[in-house]
Design a protein around this nucleic acid. Structure first.
Lengths: 259, 259
DNA sequence: GCGACTGATG
DNA sequence: CATCAGTCGC
């Protein structure tokens, strides 16, 4: 069994206790992390080593940052987009683990619909489709994990009416993500939980009682190409980590594959 | 047995774990705190209540702030100096516990010898003598606890030569404190440890390896009037708290009295 | 709300 | 080195 998980840590350094507990309990083969908010020379490499994990990462001060921890040694590690535009190395890390290529992204949030950052987000998602086209085939195993900063469907947000203009649920953002899905991905969590409402991975700190009232979003994802999706036996959101001592505003999403 | 302690917390909110551990271990009858750095409406009153302590406090944003926690309910609680000068309520709190009046102060540090704040410090110590004269008698039990920001003797600093011009060891500061002692106090810690060098309560964060090398200061004190000093059976510095997870730059000074 | 930053103070 | 205040970003 091949167990993969993704977690927006909202600062990897602040979240080491949460990550330690989850690794000890779940022993995933791969853990993708986003919003590590740490420069490479400050990255807690020893933390993963001590727990039997390899880790690769690319980060910067204060914002973004991605890491990929794996029991097996990763090969073919790459950072950032490679189409000649901004590489955004702190937002994309790719590695092959046990023969499975894994792309871990922290998609730009976009700030607000009228911001140039929203246009950048839409363009970024278009570049992702191009990235997959150039490097991979939907007929071969591939995993795309991370914080996509898009809730794909109405059932993936707590209030689809009110959130139409939110950058994470805007029709244009959803359409841009849908274009990547059409390239050849299956939403692994949704495959195992068709039509389920309120299955969220993110609850805003700023919304009072957000977790208790389940005022959340499903913006973290594990997507697989069809040959791999067919082998997936289970996918779940572990809500426990969002109730930890000093929680991230996101929680862990996991999936298991019978390779 | 009546156990009293004093601790410069350097932010009471940041130091709750340290204080919790110490209260649980030592169960003092009274704990005097300085540098709480918190406004009254943000003070962690519940923290003390949950542990079986009453607490009174006076603080402000960012600087100074004093608190007094006690197992027995305190009576005659007063704040600040009352001589018509600046009351400095965040630097002096007085309460009577089990019949013993206790004055807890955070004496102004003084910044540098040429600063007006140093003159203010010297004046403040003079006002303390006046305060004791007006309110108390050396023939009756009285405790003066706190961070006095003065190391009384050469054996109370790591390098008496080099520190002559430091505001906490300046001859004028020492003389000003000595004038208060002469009113009628016994240095309770020193009574039990005459002539001992290097018995410090404060080690500057900025001095590398200060604690390990014992590059410190004895600036925190428990002083008693003679009738009470005669009943003191023990006084000690608990160096452990300075080695805790997120330590204050000071540690706890304690004393026991056989009432 | 809770991260991170800068610039200040001891 | 470790607080604070402010400010920024999600």
């Amino acid at each position: 069994m091949f167990k993969v998980a993704t977690f927006n840590a909202n600062s990897i350094r602040s979240r080491l206790p949460v990550i330690a507990a989850w690794l000890a309990q779940e022993k995933p083969d791969v853990l993708c992390l986003q919003e590590t908010k740490v420069q490479d020379h400050e990255s807690p490499a020893a933390f993963f080593r001590e727990r039997g994990y390899h880790v690769v990462f690319r980060g910067q001060k204060a914002h973004a940052g991605v890491a990929l921890a794996s029991r097996a040694e990763p090969t073919d590690v790459r950072y950032g987009l490679d189409d000649g535009g901004p590489a955004d190395e702190a937002r994309l890390i790719q590695a092959t683990v046990e023969g499975i290529p894994i792309v871990n992204t922290y998609v730009p949030q976009g700030q607000s619909v009228d911001s140039p950052l929203f246009a950048y987000k839409l363009e970024w998602l278009a570049r992702m489709r191009d990235y997959f086209t150039r490097h991979f085939s939907p007929r071969k195993p591939l995993l795309w994990c991370g914080d996509f900063n898009v809730a794909p469907e109405e059932i993936d947000v707590h209030d689809p009416q009110r959130l139409q203009k939110h950058v994470d649920f805007h029709p244009e953002a959803r359409a841009a993500l849908e274009r990547v899905r059409e390239w050849g991905f299956v939403d692994v969590f949704r495959q195992h939980h068709p039509g389920e409402h309120g299955q969220f991975t993110f609850w805003d700190y700023r919304v009072r009682g957000a977790f208790e009232r389940n005022v959340g979003w499903r913006v973290d994802h594990i997507w697989a190409t069809p040959p791999l999706a067919r082998k997936s036996v289970r996918s779940w959101i572990d809500r426990e980590a969002r109730q930890a001592e000093k929680p991230s505003d996101h929680t862990f999403l996991a999936a298991e594959f019978a390779l």
